[in-house]
């Protein structure tokens, strides 16, 4: 048999509804019937929203864009797990075949002080932008770059940098952490740059500044529980946090910054 057999599901959904940032919210229950197991999770929400519009109820707001797992826009807590039960998968790439007929699915927004709810399942993740803004770059102006092959980057260093740079900025690490810590996100950028020759000039300044911004944005601290690593759809490893710790202490105690 080479083709998947499509089935249909009847589901109960409990979804966080909140009209705005300053309003209070609550879980609301909906039922859906005949959901194809070939649907993505977001397509299931699309069906719900069409049903709500037909019934005169405002649809559920949720963030999404590329729907192929790379833009990092989507992301909700599904039964208490960031992006749902499948590992290394964003919400948009999760398919309904991972659920069973008759299931109750609880859907909540990312919760963190630094990610205030905008509406329903939509949160404000601009704190991530402010962290990058405080140092997540190489200060090079357009036009002045030397030939790309002038500075060799050994294959293994490039691979390490690429693995860290793969972060999609979705915020699942923060959402899944018991402390709402952003360490995995910040460390991905710190190690991406620290592992490349291009990132050396600002190595110390970058980590000090990005961690200071992270703290100021009121993310929690790291308890080394590795929940972030398990929730990360982009496969960012916990070892990045260890490297960031090292980078930070080196910068704090031994650099001139």
């Amino acid at each position: 048999m080479n083709h998947s057999t499509s089935k249909t599901l009847n589901l109960t959904l409990k979804i966080w509804r909140q009209a705005g940032p300053d309003q209070s919210g609550a879980l609301k229950t909906y039922t859906l019937t005949n959901i194809s197991t070939d649907m993505s999770f977001l397509e299931m929400l699309d069906v719900l929203n069409e049903q709500l519009i037909a019934n005169g109820e405002e649809p559920v707001a949720f963030d999404h864009d590329c729907r192929e797992g790379i833009c990092g826009t989507c992301g909700v807590m599904i039964n208490g797990q960031a992006h749902g039960p499948e590992s290394a998968t964003t919400t948009c790439q999760l398919h309904m075949r991972k659920f069973n007929d008759g299931d109750t699915i609880l859907i909540e927004p990312w919760r963190a002080k630094a990610f205030p709810v905008v509406r329903d399942l939509v949160v404000d993740r601009s704190a991530f932008d402010r962290i990058i803004q405080s140092g997540g770059y190489v200060s090079v102006n357009t036009g002045g770059a030397p030939d790309a092959n002038a500075i060799p980057v050994p294959g293994h260093m490039q691979k390490d940098a690429m693995a860290a740079a793969a972060c999609i900025g979705c915020g699942a690490c923060v959402a899944s952490c018991k402390n709402a810590s952003a360490m995995l996100f910040v460390s991905a950028k710190v190690t991406h740059m620290a592992n490349l020759p291009q990132g050396q000039a600002e190595r110390s300044k970058r980590v000090l500044s990005m961690v200071a911004t992270m703290d100021a944005e009121q993310f929690g601290n790291c308890s080394n529980t590795a929940e972030c690593e398990a929730a990360c759809p982009a496969g960012i490893k916990l070892s990045n946090i260890a490297q960031m710790n090292r980078e930070y202490m080196k910068a704090l105690l031994f650099s001139c910054e």
């Binding site: 409990k14 879980l27 807590m77 039964n79 208490g80 797990q81 960031a82 039960p85 590992s87 609880l106 909540e108 919760r111 963190a112 002080k113 630094a114 899944s176 018991k178 402390n179 709402a180 810590s181 009121q218 993310f219 929690g220 601290n221 308890s223 590795a226 929940e227 398990a230 929730a231």
Partner: peptide, 17 residues
């Protein structure tokens, strides 16, 4: 500090490990 970083709690929270 960690407790302050998440004021509203999840209704359900499960590990993904």
């Amino acid at each position: 500090g960690n407790a302050k970083a998440r004021e509203e709690q999840y209704a359900v929270k499960q590990t993904k490990i």
